[in-house]
Lab assay of single mutants.
Amino acid sequence: EIHIRTNGEEQARKVYKMLAKRNYDVKIEQHNGQWVVTAS
């Protein structure tokens, strides 16, 4: 499982799309105001 911390919604969405293209199961979560993308 991969966790990627991003500094904002826009970046989180870019990372989300990139990983989704590679057939990862991707989730975006917010932790303490930080956007974290989780891929498995």
Rank of each mutant, 00 (worst) to 15 (best):
Q34S: 07
E10V: 10
S40Y: 11
Q30P: 03
M18N: 06
R22A: 12
R22P: 03
G33Y: 03
A20T: 10
Q30N: 13
S40W: 13
K17I: 11
E29P: 00
K21H: 09
I2M: 06
I2L: 08
L19N: 00
E10K: 13
K17D: 15
G33I: 02
A12W: 02
H3K: 14
Y16G: 12
T6H: 04
D25T: 13
R13N: 07
K14L: 12
H3V: 15
I28W: 02
S40R: 12
S40V: 12
D25V: 14
Y24D: 03
E9R: 09
K27E: 04
T6Y: 10
G8S: 15
N32K: 08
W35S: 00
N23P: 03
N7F: 09
V37P: 00
K21G: 11
T6I: 12
A20M: 13
E9L: 15
R5K: 10
N23C: 12
Y24V: 05
E29A: 09
Q34T: 10
V36S: 05
K14P: 01
E29I: 11
I4P: 01
H31G: 04
A20W: 06
T6A: 09
Y16K: 06
N32H: 07
M18H: 10
R5M: 12
L19A: 01
A39L: 13
V36N: 03
E9D: 03
G33E: 06
A20K: 14
R13S: 04
K27A: 06
K17P: 01
K14E: 10
Q11A: 09
K14M: 10
K17M: 12
R22E: 09
N23A: 08
Q30E: 10
S40G: 06
N7S: 11
D25S: 11
N7V: 08
K21T: 08
K14A: 11
Q11L: 10
G33T: 04
H3G: 03
K27R: 11
I2H: 05
R13V: 07
N23F: 15
H31R: 10
N7W: 12
V37E: 00
E1D: 09
E29T: 12
E9Y: 15
Y24P: 04
I2E: 03
R22T: 06
K17Y: 12
W35D: 00
V37H: 00
H31L: 13
T38E: 03
Q30T: 07
V15I: 15
H3Y: 15
I28F: 03
G8W: 12
A12F: 01
L19V: 02
V26S: 02
A12E: 00
E1R: 13
V26G: 02
Q11D: 09
Y16S: 09
N32M: 07
I4F: 13
Q11K: 06
K14W: 14
H3N: 09
N23M: 09
S40K: 12
S40F: 12
E1H: 14
L19K: 01
Q30M: 11
S40H: 10
M18V: 08
E1G: 10
R22K: 11
R13Y: 11
A39K: 03
Q11M: 10
T38Q: 04
R13K: 09
K27G: 03
Q30F: 14
R22W: 14
E9A: 06
V37M: 01
Y24W: 10
K17V: 11
K21M: 12
I4T: 02
Q34A: 08
R5A: 08
V37L: 04
E9I: 14
T6S: 05
V36F: 12
Q11P: 03
E10S: 10
E1I: 15
G33P: 00
E10M: 10
Y16D: 02
Q34R: 07
E29F: 15
G33K: 04
K27L: 05
L19M: 05
E9Q: 06
E9V: 08
Y16V: 06
V36A: 04
Y24F: 11
V37N: 00
Y24K: 05
V15R: 02
W35T: 01
V15W: 14
G8N: 15
M18E: 12
M18L: 11
G8Y: 14
Y16H: 05
Q11F: 10
H3L: 12
Y24I: 06
N23W: 14
H3C: 15
N7M: 07
V26E: 00
E29L: 09
E29Y: 15
Q34C: 11
R5D: 04
Q30A: 06
H31E: 10
T6E: 02
V15L: 13
D25W: 10
V15A: 05
G8A: 10
Y16L: 07
A39Y: 14
A39E: 02
A39M: 10
S40L: 09
R13P: 00
E9S: 05
Q30V: 13
V36I: 13
Q11I: 11
N7T: 10
Y16M: 13
Q30C: 14
N23G: 15
V26L: 04
A20S: 10
A20G: 04
I4R: 01
L19E: 01
I28N: 00
Q30W: 09
N32I: 03
Y24H: 05
I4V: 07
V37I: 10
H31T: 09
D25Y: 12
Q34V: 13
V26A: 05
T38I: 15
K27T: 07
Y24R: 05
L19G: 01
E29G: 07
G8F: 14
I28P: 00
E29S: 11
Y16F: 11
E1Y: 15
W35A: 01
R13Q: 09
L19Q: 01
A12T: 02
N23Q: 08
I4G: 01
G33L: 04
T6P: 03
A12Y: 01
K17E: 15
N23H: 14
R13D: 03
K14R: 12
L19F: 08
D25I: 14
R5T: 12
T6R: 04
T38M: 07
V36L: 10
A39N: 04
D25Q: 14
I2A: 03
Y24M: 08
K17N: 14
E10I: 09
K27Y: 07
K17H: 12
S40N: 08
A20I: 13
M18A: 12
N32P: 02
R13T: 05
A12C: 09
V26K: 01
R22Q: 12
R5E: 07
I4A: 01
E10G: 09
V15C: 13
G33Q: 05
H31A: 09
K27N: 05
Q11R: 06
I4N: 02
Q30H: 10
N7R: 11
Y24E: 03
I4M: 04
D25G: 05
K17L: 13
Q34W: 14
T38H: 08
E9P: 11
N32A: 08
E9W: 14
K14G: 05
M18K: 06
G33S: 05
E10F: 08
E1T: 14
M18S: 07
V36Q: 05
K21S: 12
G33M: 05
V15F: 09
A12R: 01
R13A: 05
K21V: 08
Q34F: 15
M18T: 06
M18D: 09
K21E: 15
M18I: 11
G8L: 12
E9N: 03
Q30L: 11
G33V: 02
R22H: 13
E1N: 09
D25F: 12
T38D: 02
A20L: 15
K27D: 03
E10R: 13
L19H: 01
H3R: 14
K21N: 11
A39R: 03
G33A: 04
T6W: 03
H31F: 12
L19Y: 06
T38Y: 08
A39H: 05
G8D: 15
K21W: 08
V15S: 02
A20P: 01
R5H: 11
A20V: 13
R5S: 07
A20R: 11
N23I: 03
H31D: 10
V15T: 03
T38V: 13
Y24S: 04
K21C: 13
H31C: 14
W35V: 01
T38A: 04
Q34L: 09
Y16Q: 08
N23T: 04
I4D: 02
K17A: 14
M18Y: 15
V26F: 01
N32D: 12
R5C: 14
Y24Q: 04
Y16W: 06
W35Q: 00
K27P: 00
K21P: 02
A12M: 03
I28K: 01
A39I: 15
V26W: 02
